[in-house]
Design a protein around this nucleic acid. Sequence first.
DNA 1: GGCTGATCTTTACTGATTCCAGTTTATGGT
DNA 2: ACCATAAACTGGAATCAGTAAAGATCAGCC
Lengths: 137, 137
Amino acid sequence: MPTQTDCERLLREAGLRVTRPRVSVLSAVHAHPHADTDTIIRAVRQGSGVVSHQAVYDVLKALTDARLLRRIQPAGLVARYEARVGDNHHHVVCRGCGAIEDIEVSLDLAGARRSASRAGFAADHAEVVVSGLCRKC
Amino acid sequence: MPTQTDCERLLREAGLRVTRPRVSVLSAVHAHPHADTDTIIRAVRQGSGVVSHQAVYDVLKALTDARLLRRIQPAGLVARYEARVGDNHHHVVCRGCGAIEDIEVSLDLAGARRSASRAGFAADHAEVVVSGLCRKC
DNA sequence: GGCTGATCTTTACTGATTCCAGTTTATGGT
DNA sequence: ACCATAAACTGGAATCAGTAAAGATCAGCC
């Protein structure tokens, strides 16, 4: 888990200004993988005082655009964020409680791209969402 | 494309009552694959007069539960419905305009299930969403 | 034809997310 | 260090898909 200084460095390296909300959001997401926006807002406020919900939304968007975060949005659930970027892992989602975990899935990306291009699409990204029940549900 | 009589039969076979809104919704989805709820509502009203939006939502849910329809919901887009059920094809989504097409993707489902179970999940379903740009975008 | 629970209609509401207008703050150039 | 400007932030209100509730209707069965 990155320290606050690490988060500041990550922001700077991404060409983003370093602000208190940004550092807080970034470290909150590191601390709570797959958390939804509301959880992140609460974590940020606990860690560093008053931050408007709008600021959190803006920051999440900015960090996602800057590829410091990845947004995942399973069907029927609110958006979640994770700090693990740069690899292409996938997710399992619990149909009962919405819990999410990372999994590895092997996928014929070239074939998918070929099939997409046959349908008239230039595809560049594939995401697998596996669903089922977690241990508790 | 099924006729109205076919739709009635499909409903009956699924153990559902045959009503005007249900027949309309089912044939609207057959006529507009990957349509969103709003499009379906408009198509239904054009075809068969006044139907409340709530009825359409209810019918879509009932038909989806009865496996006559399949609901797909790509990240960040509203829910779509398609009448092609019973196989497990996947989708490409255009990041520009939200257009959706069917594609074939080969996927190591057993491996995915194994990886999910390692994470504590009993997985029973996997969906691949490929994204990119369609010809127009 | 009459019964009964499933369906529909109407209307209101929820909750996530976004928009907007105005204010504050960080950063690059001097 | 100082200024100007672009980027961020605040707080409130709007939007929009989807859900809820209550009463009116209707399909399927006798």
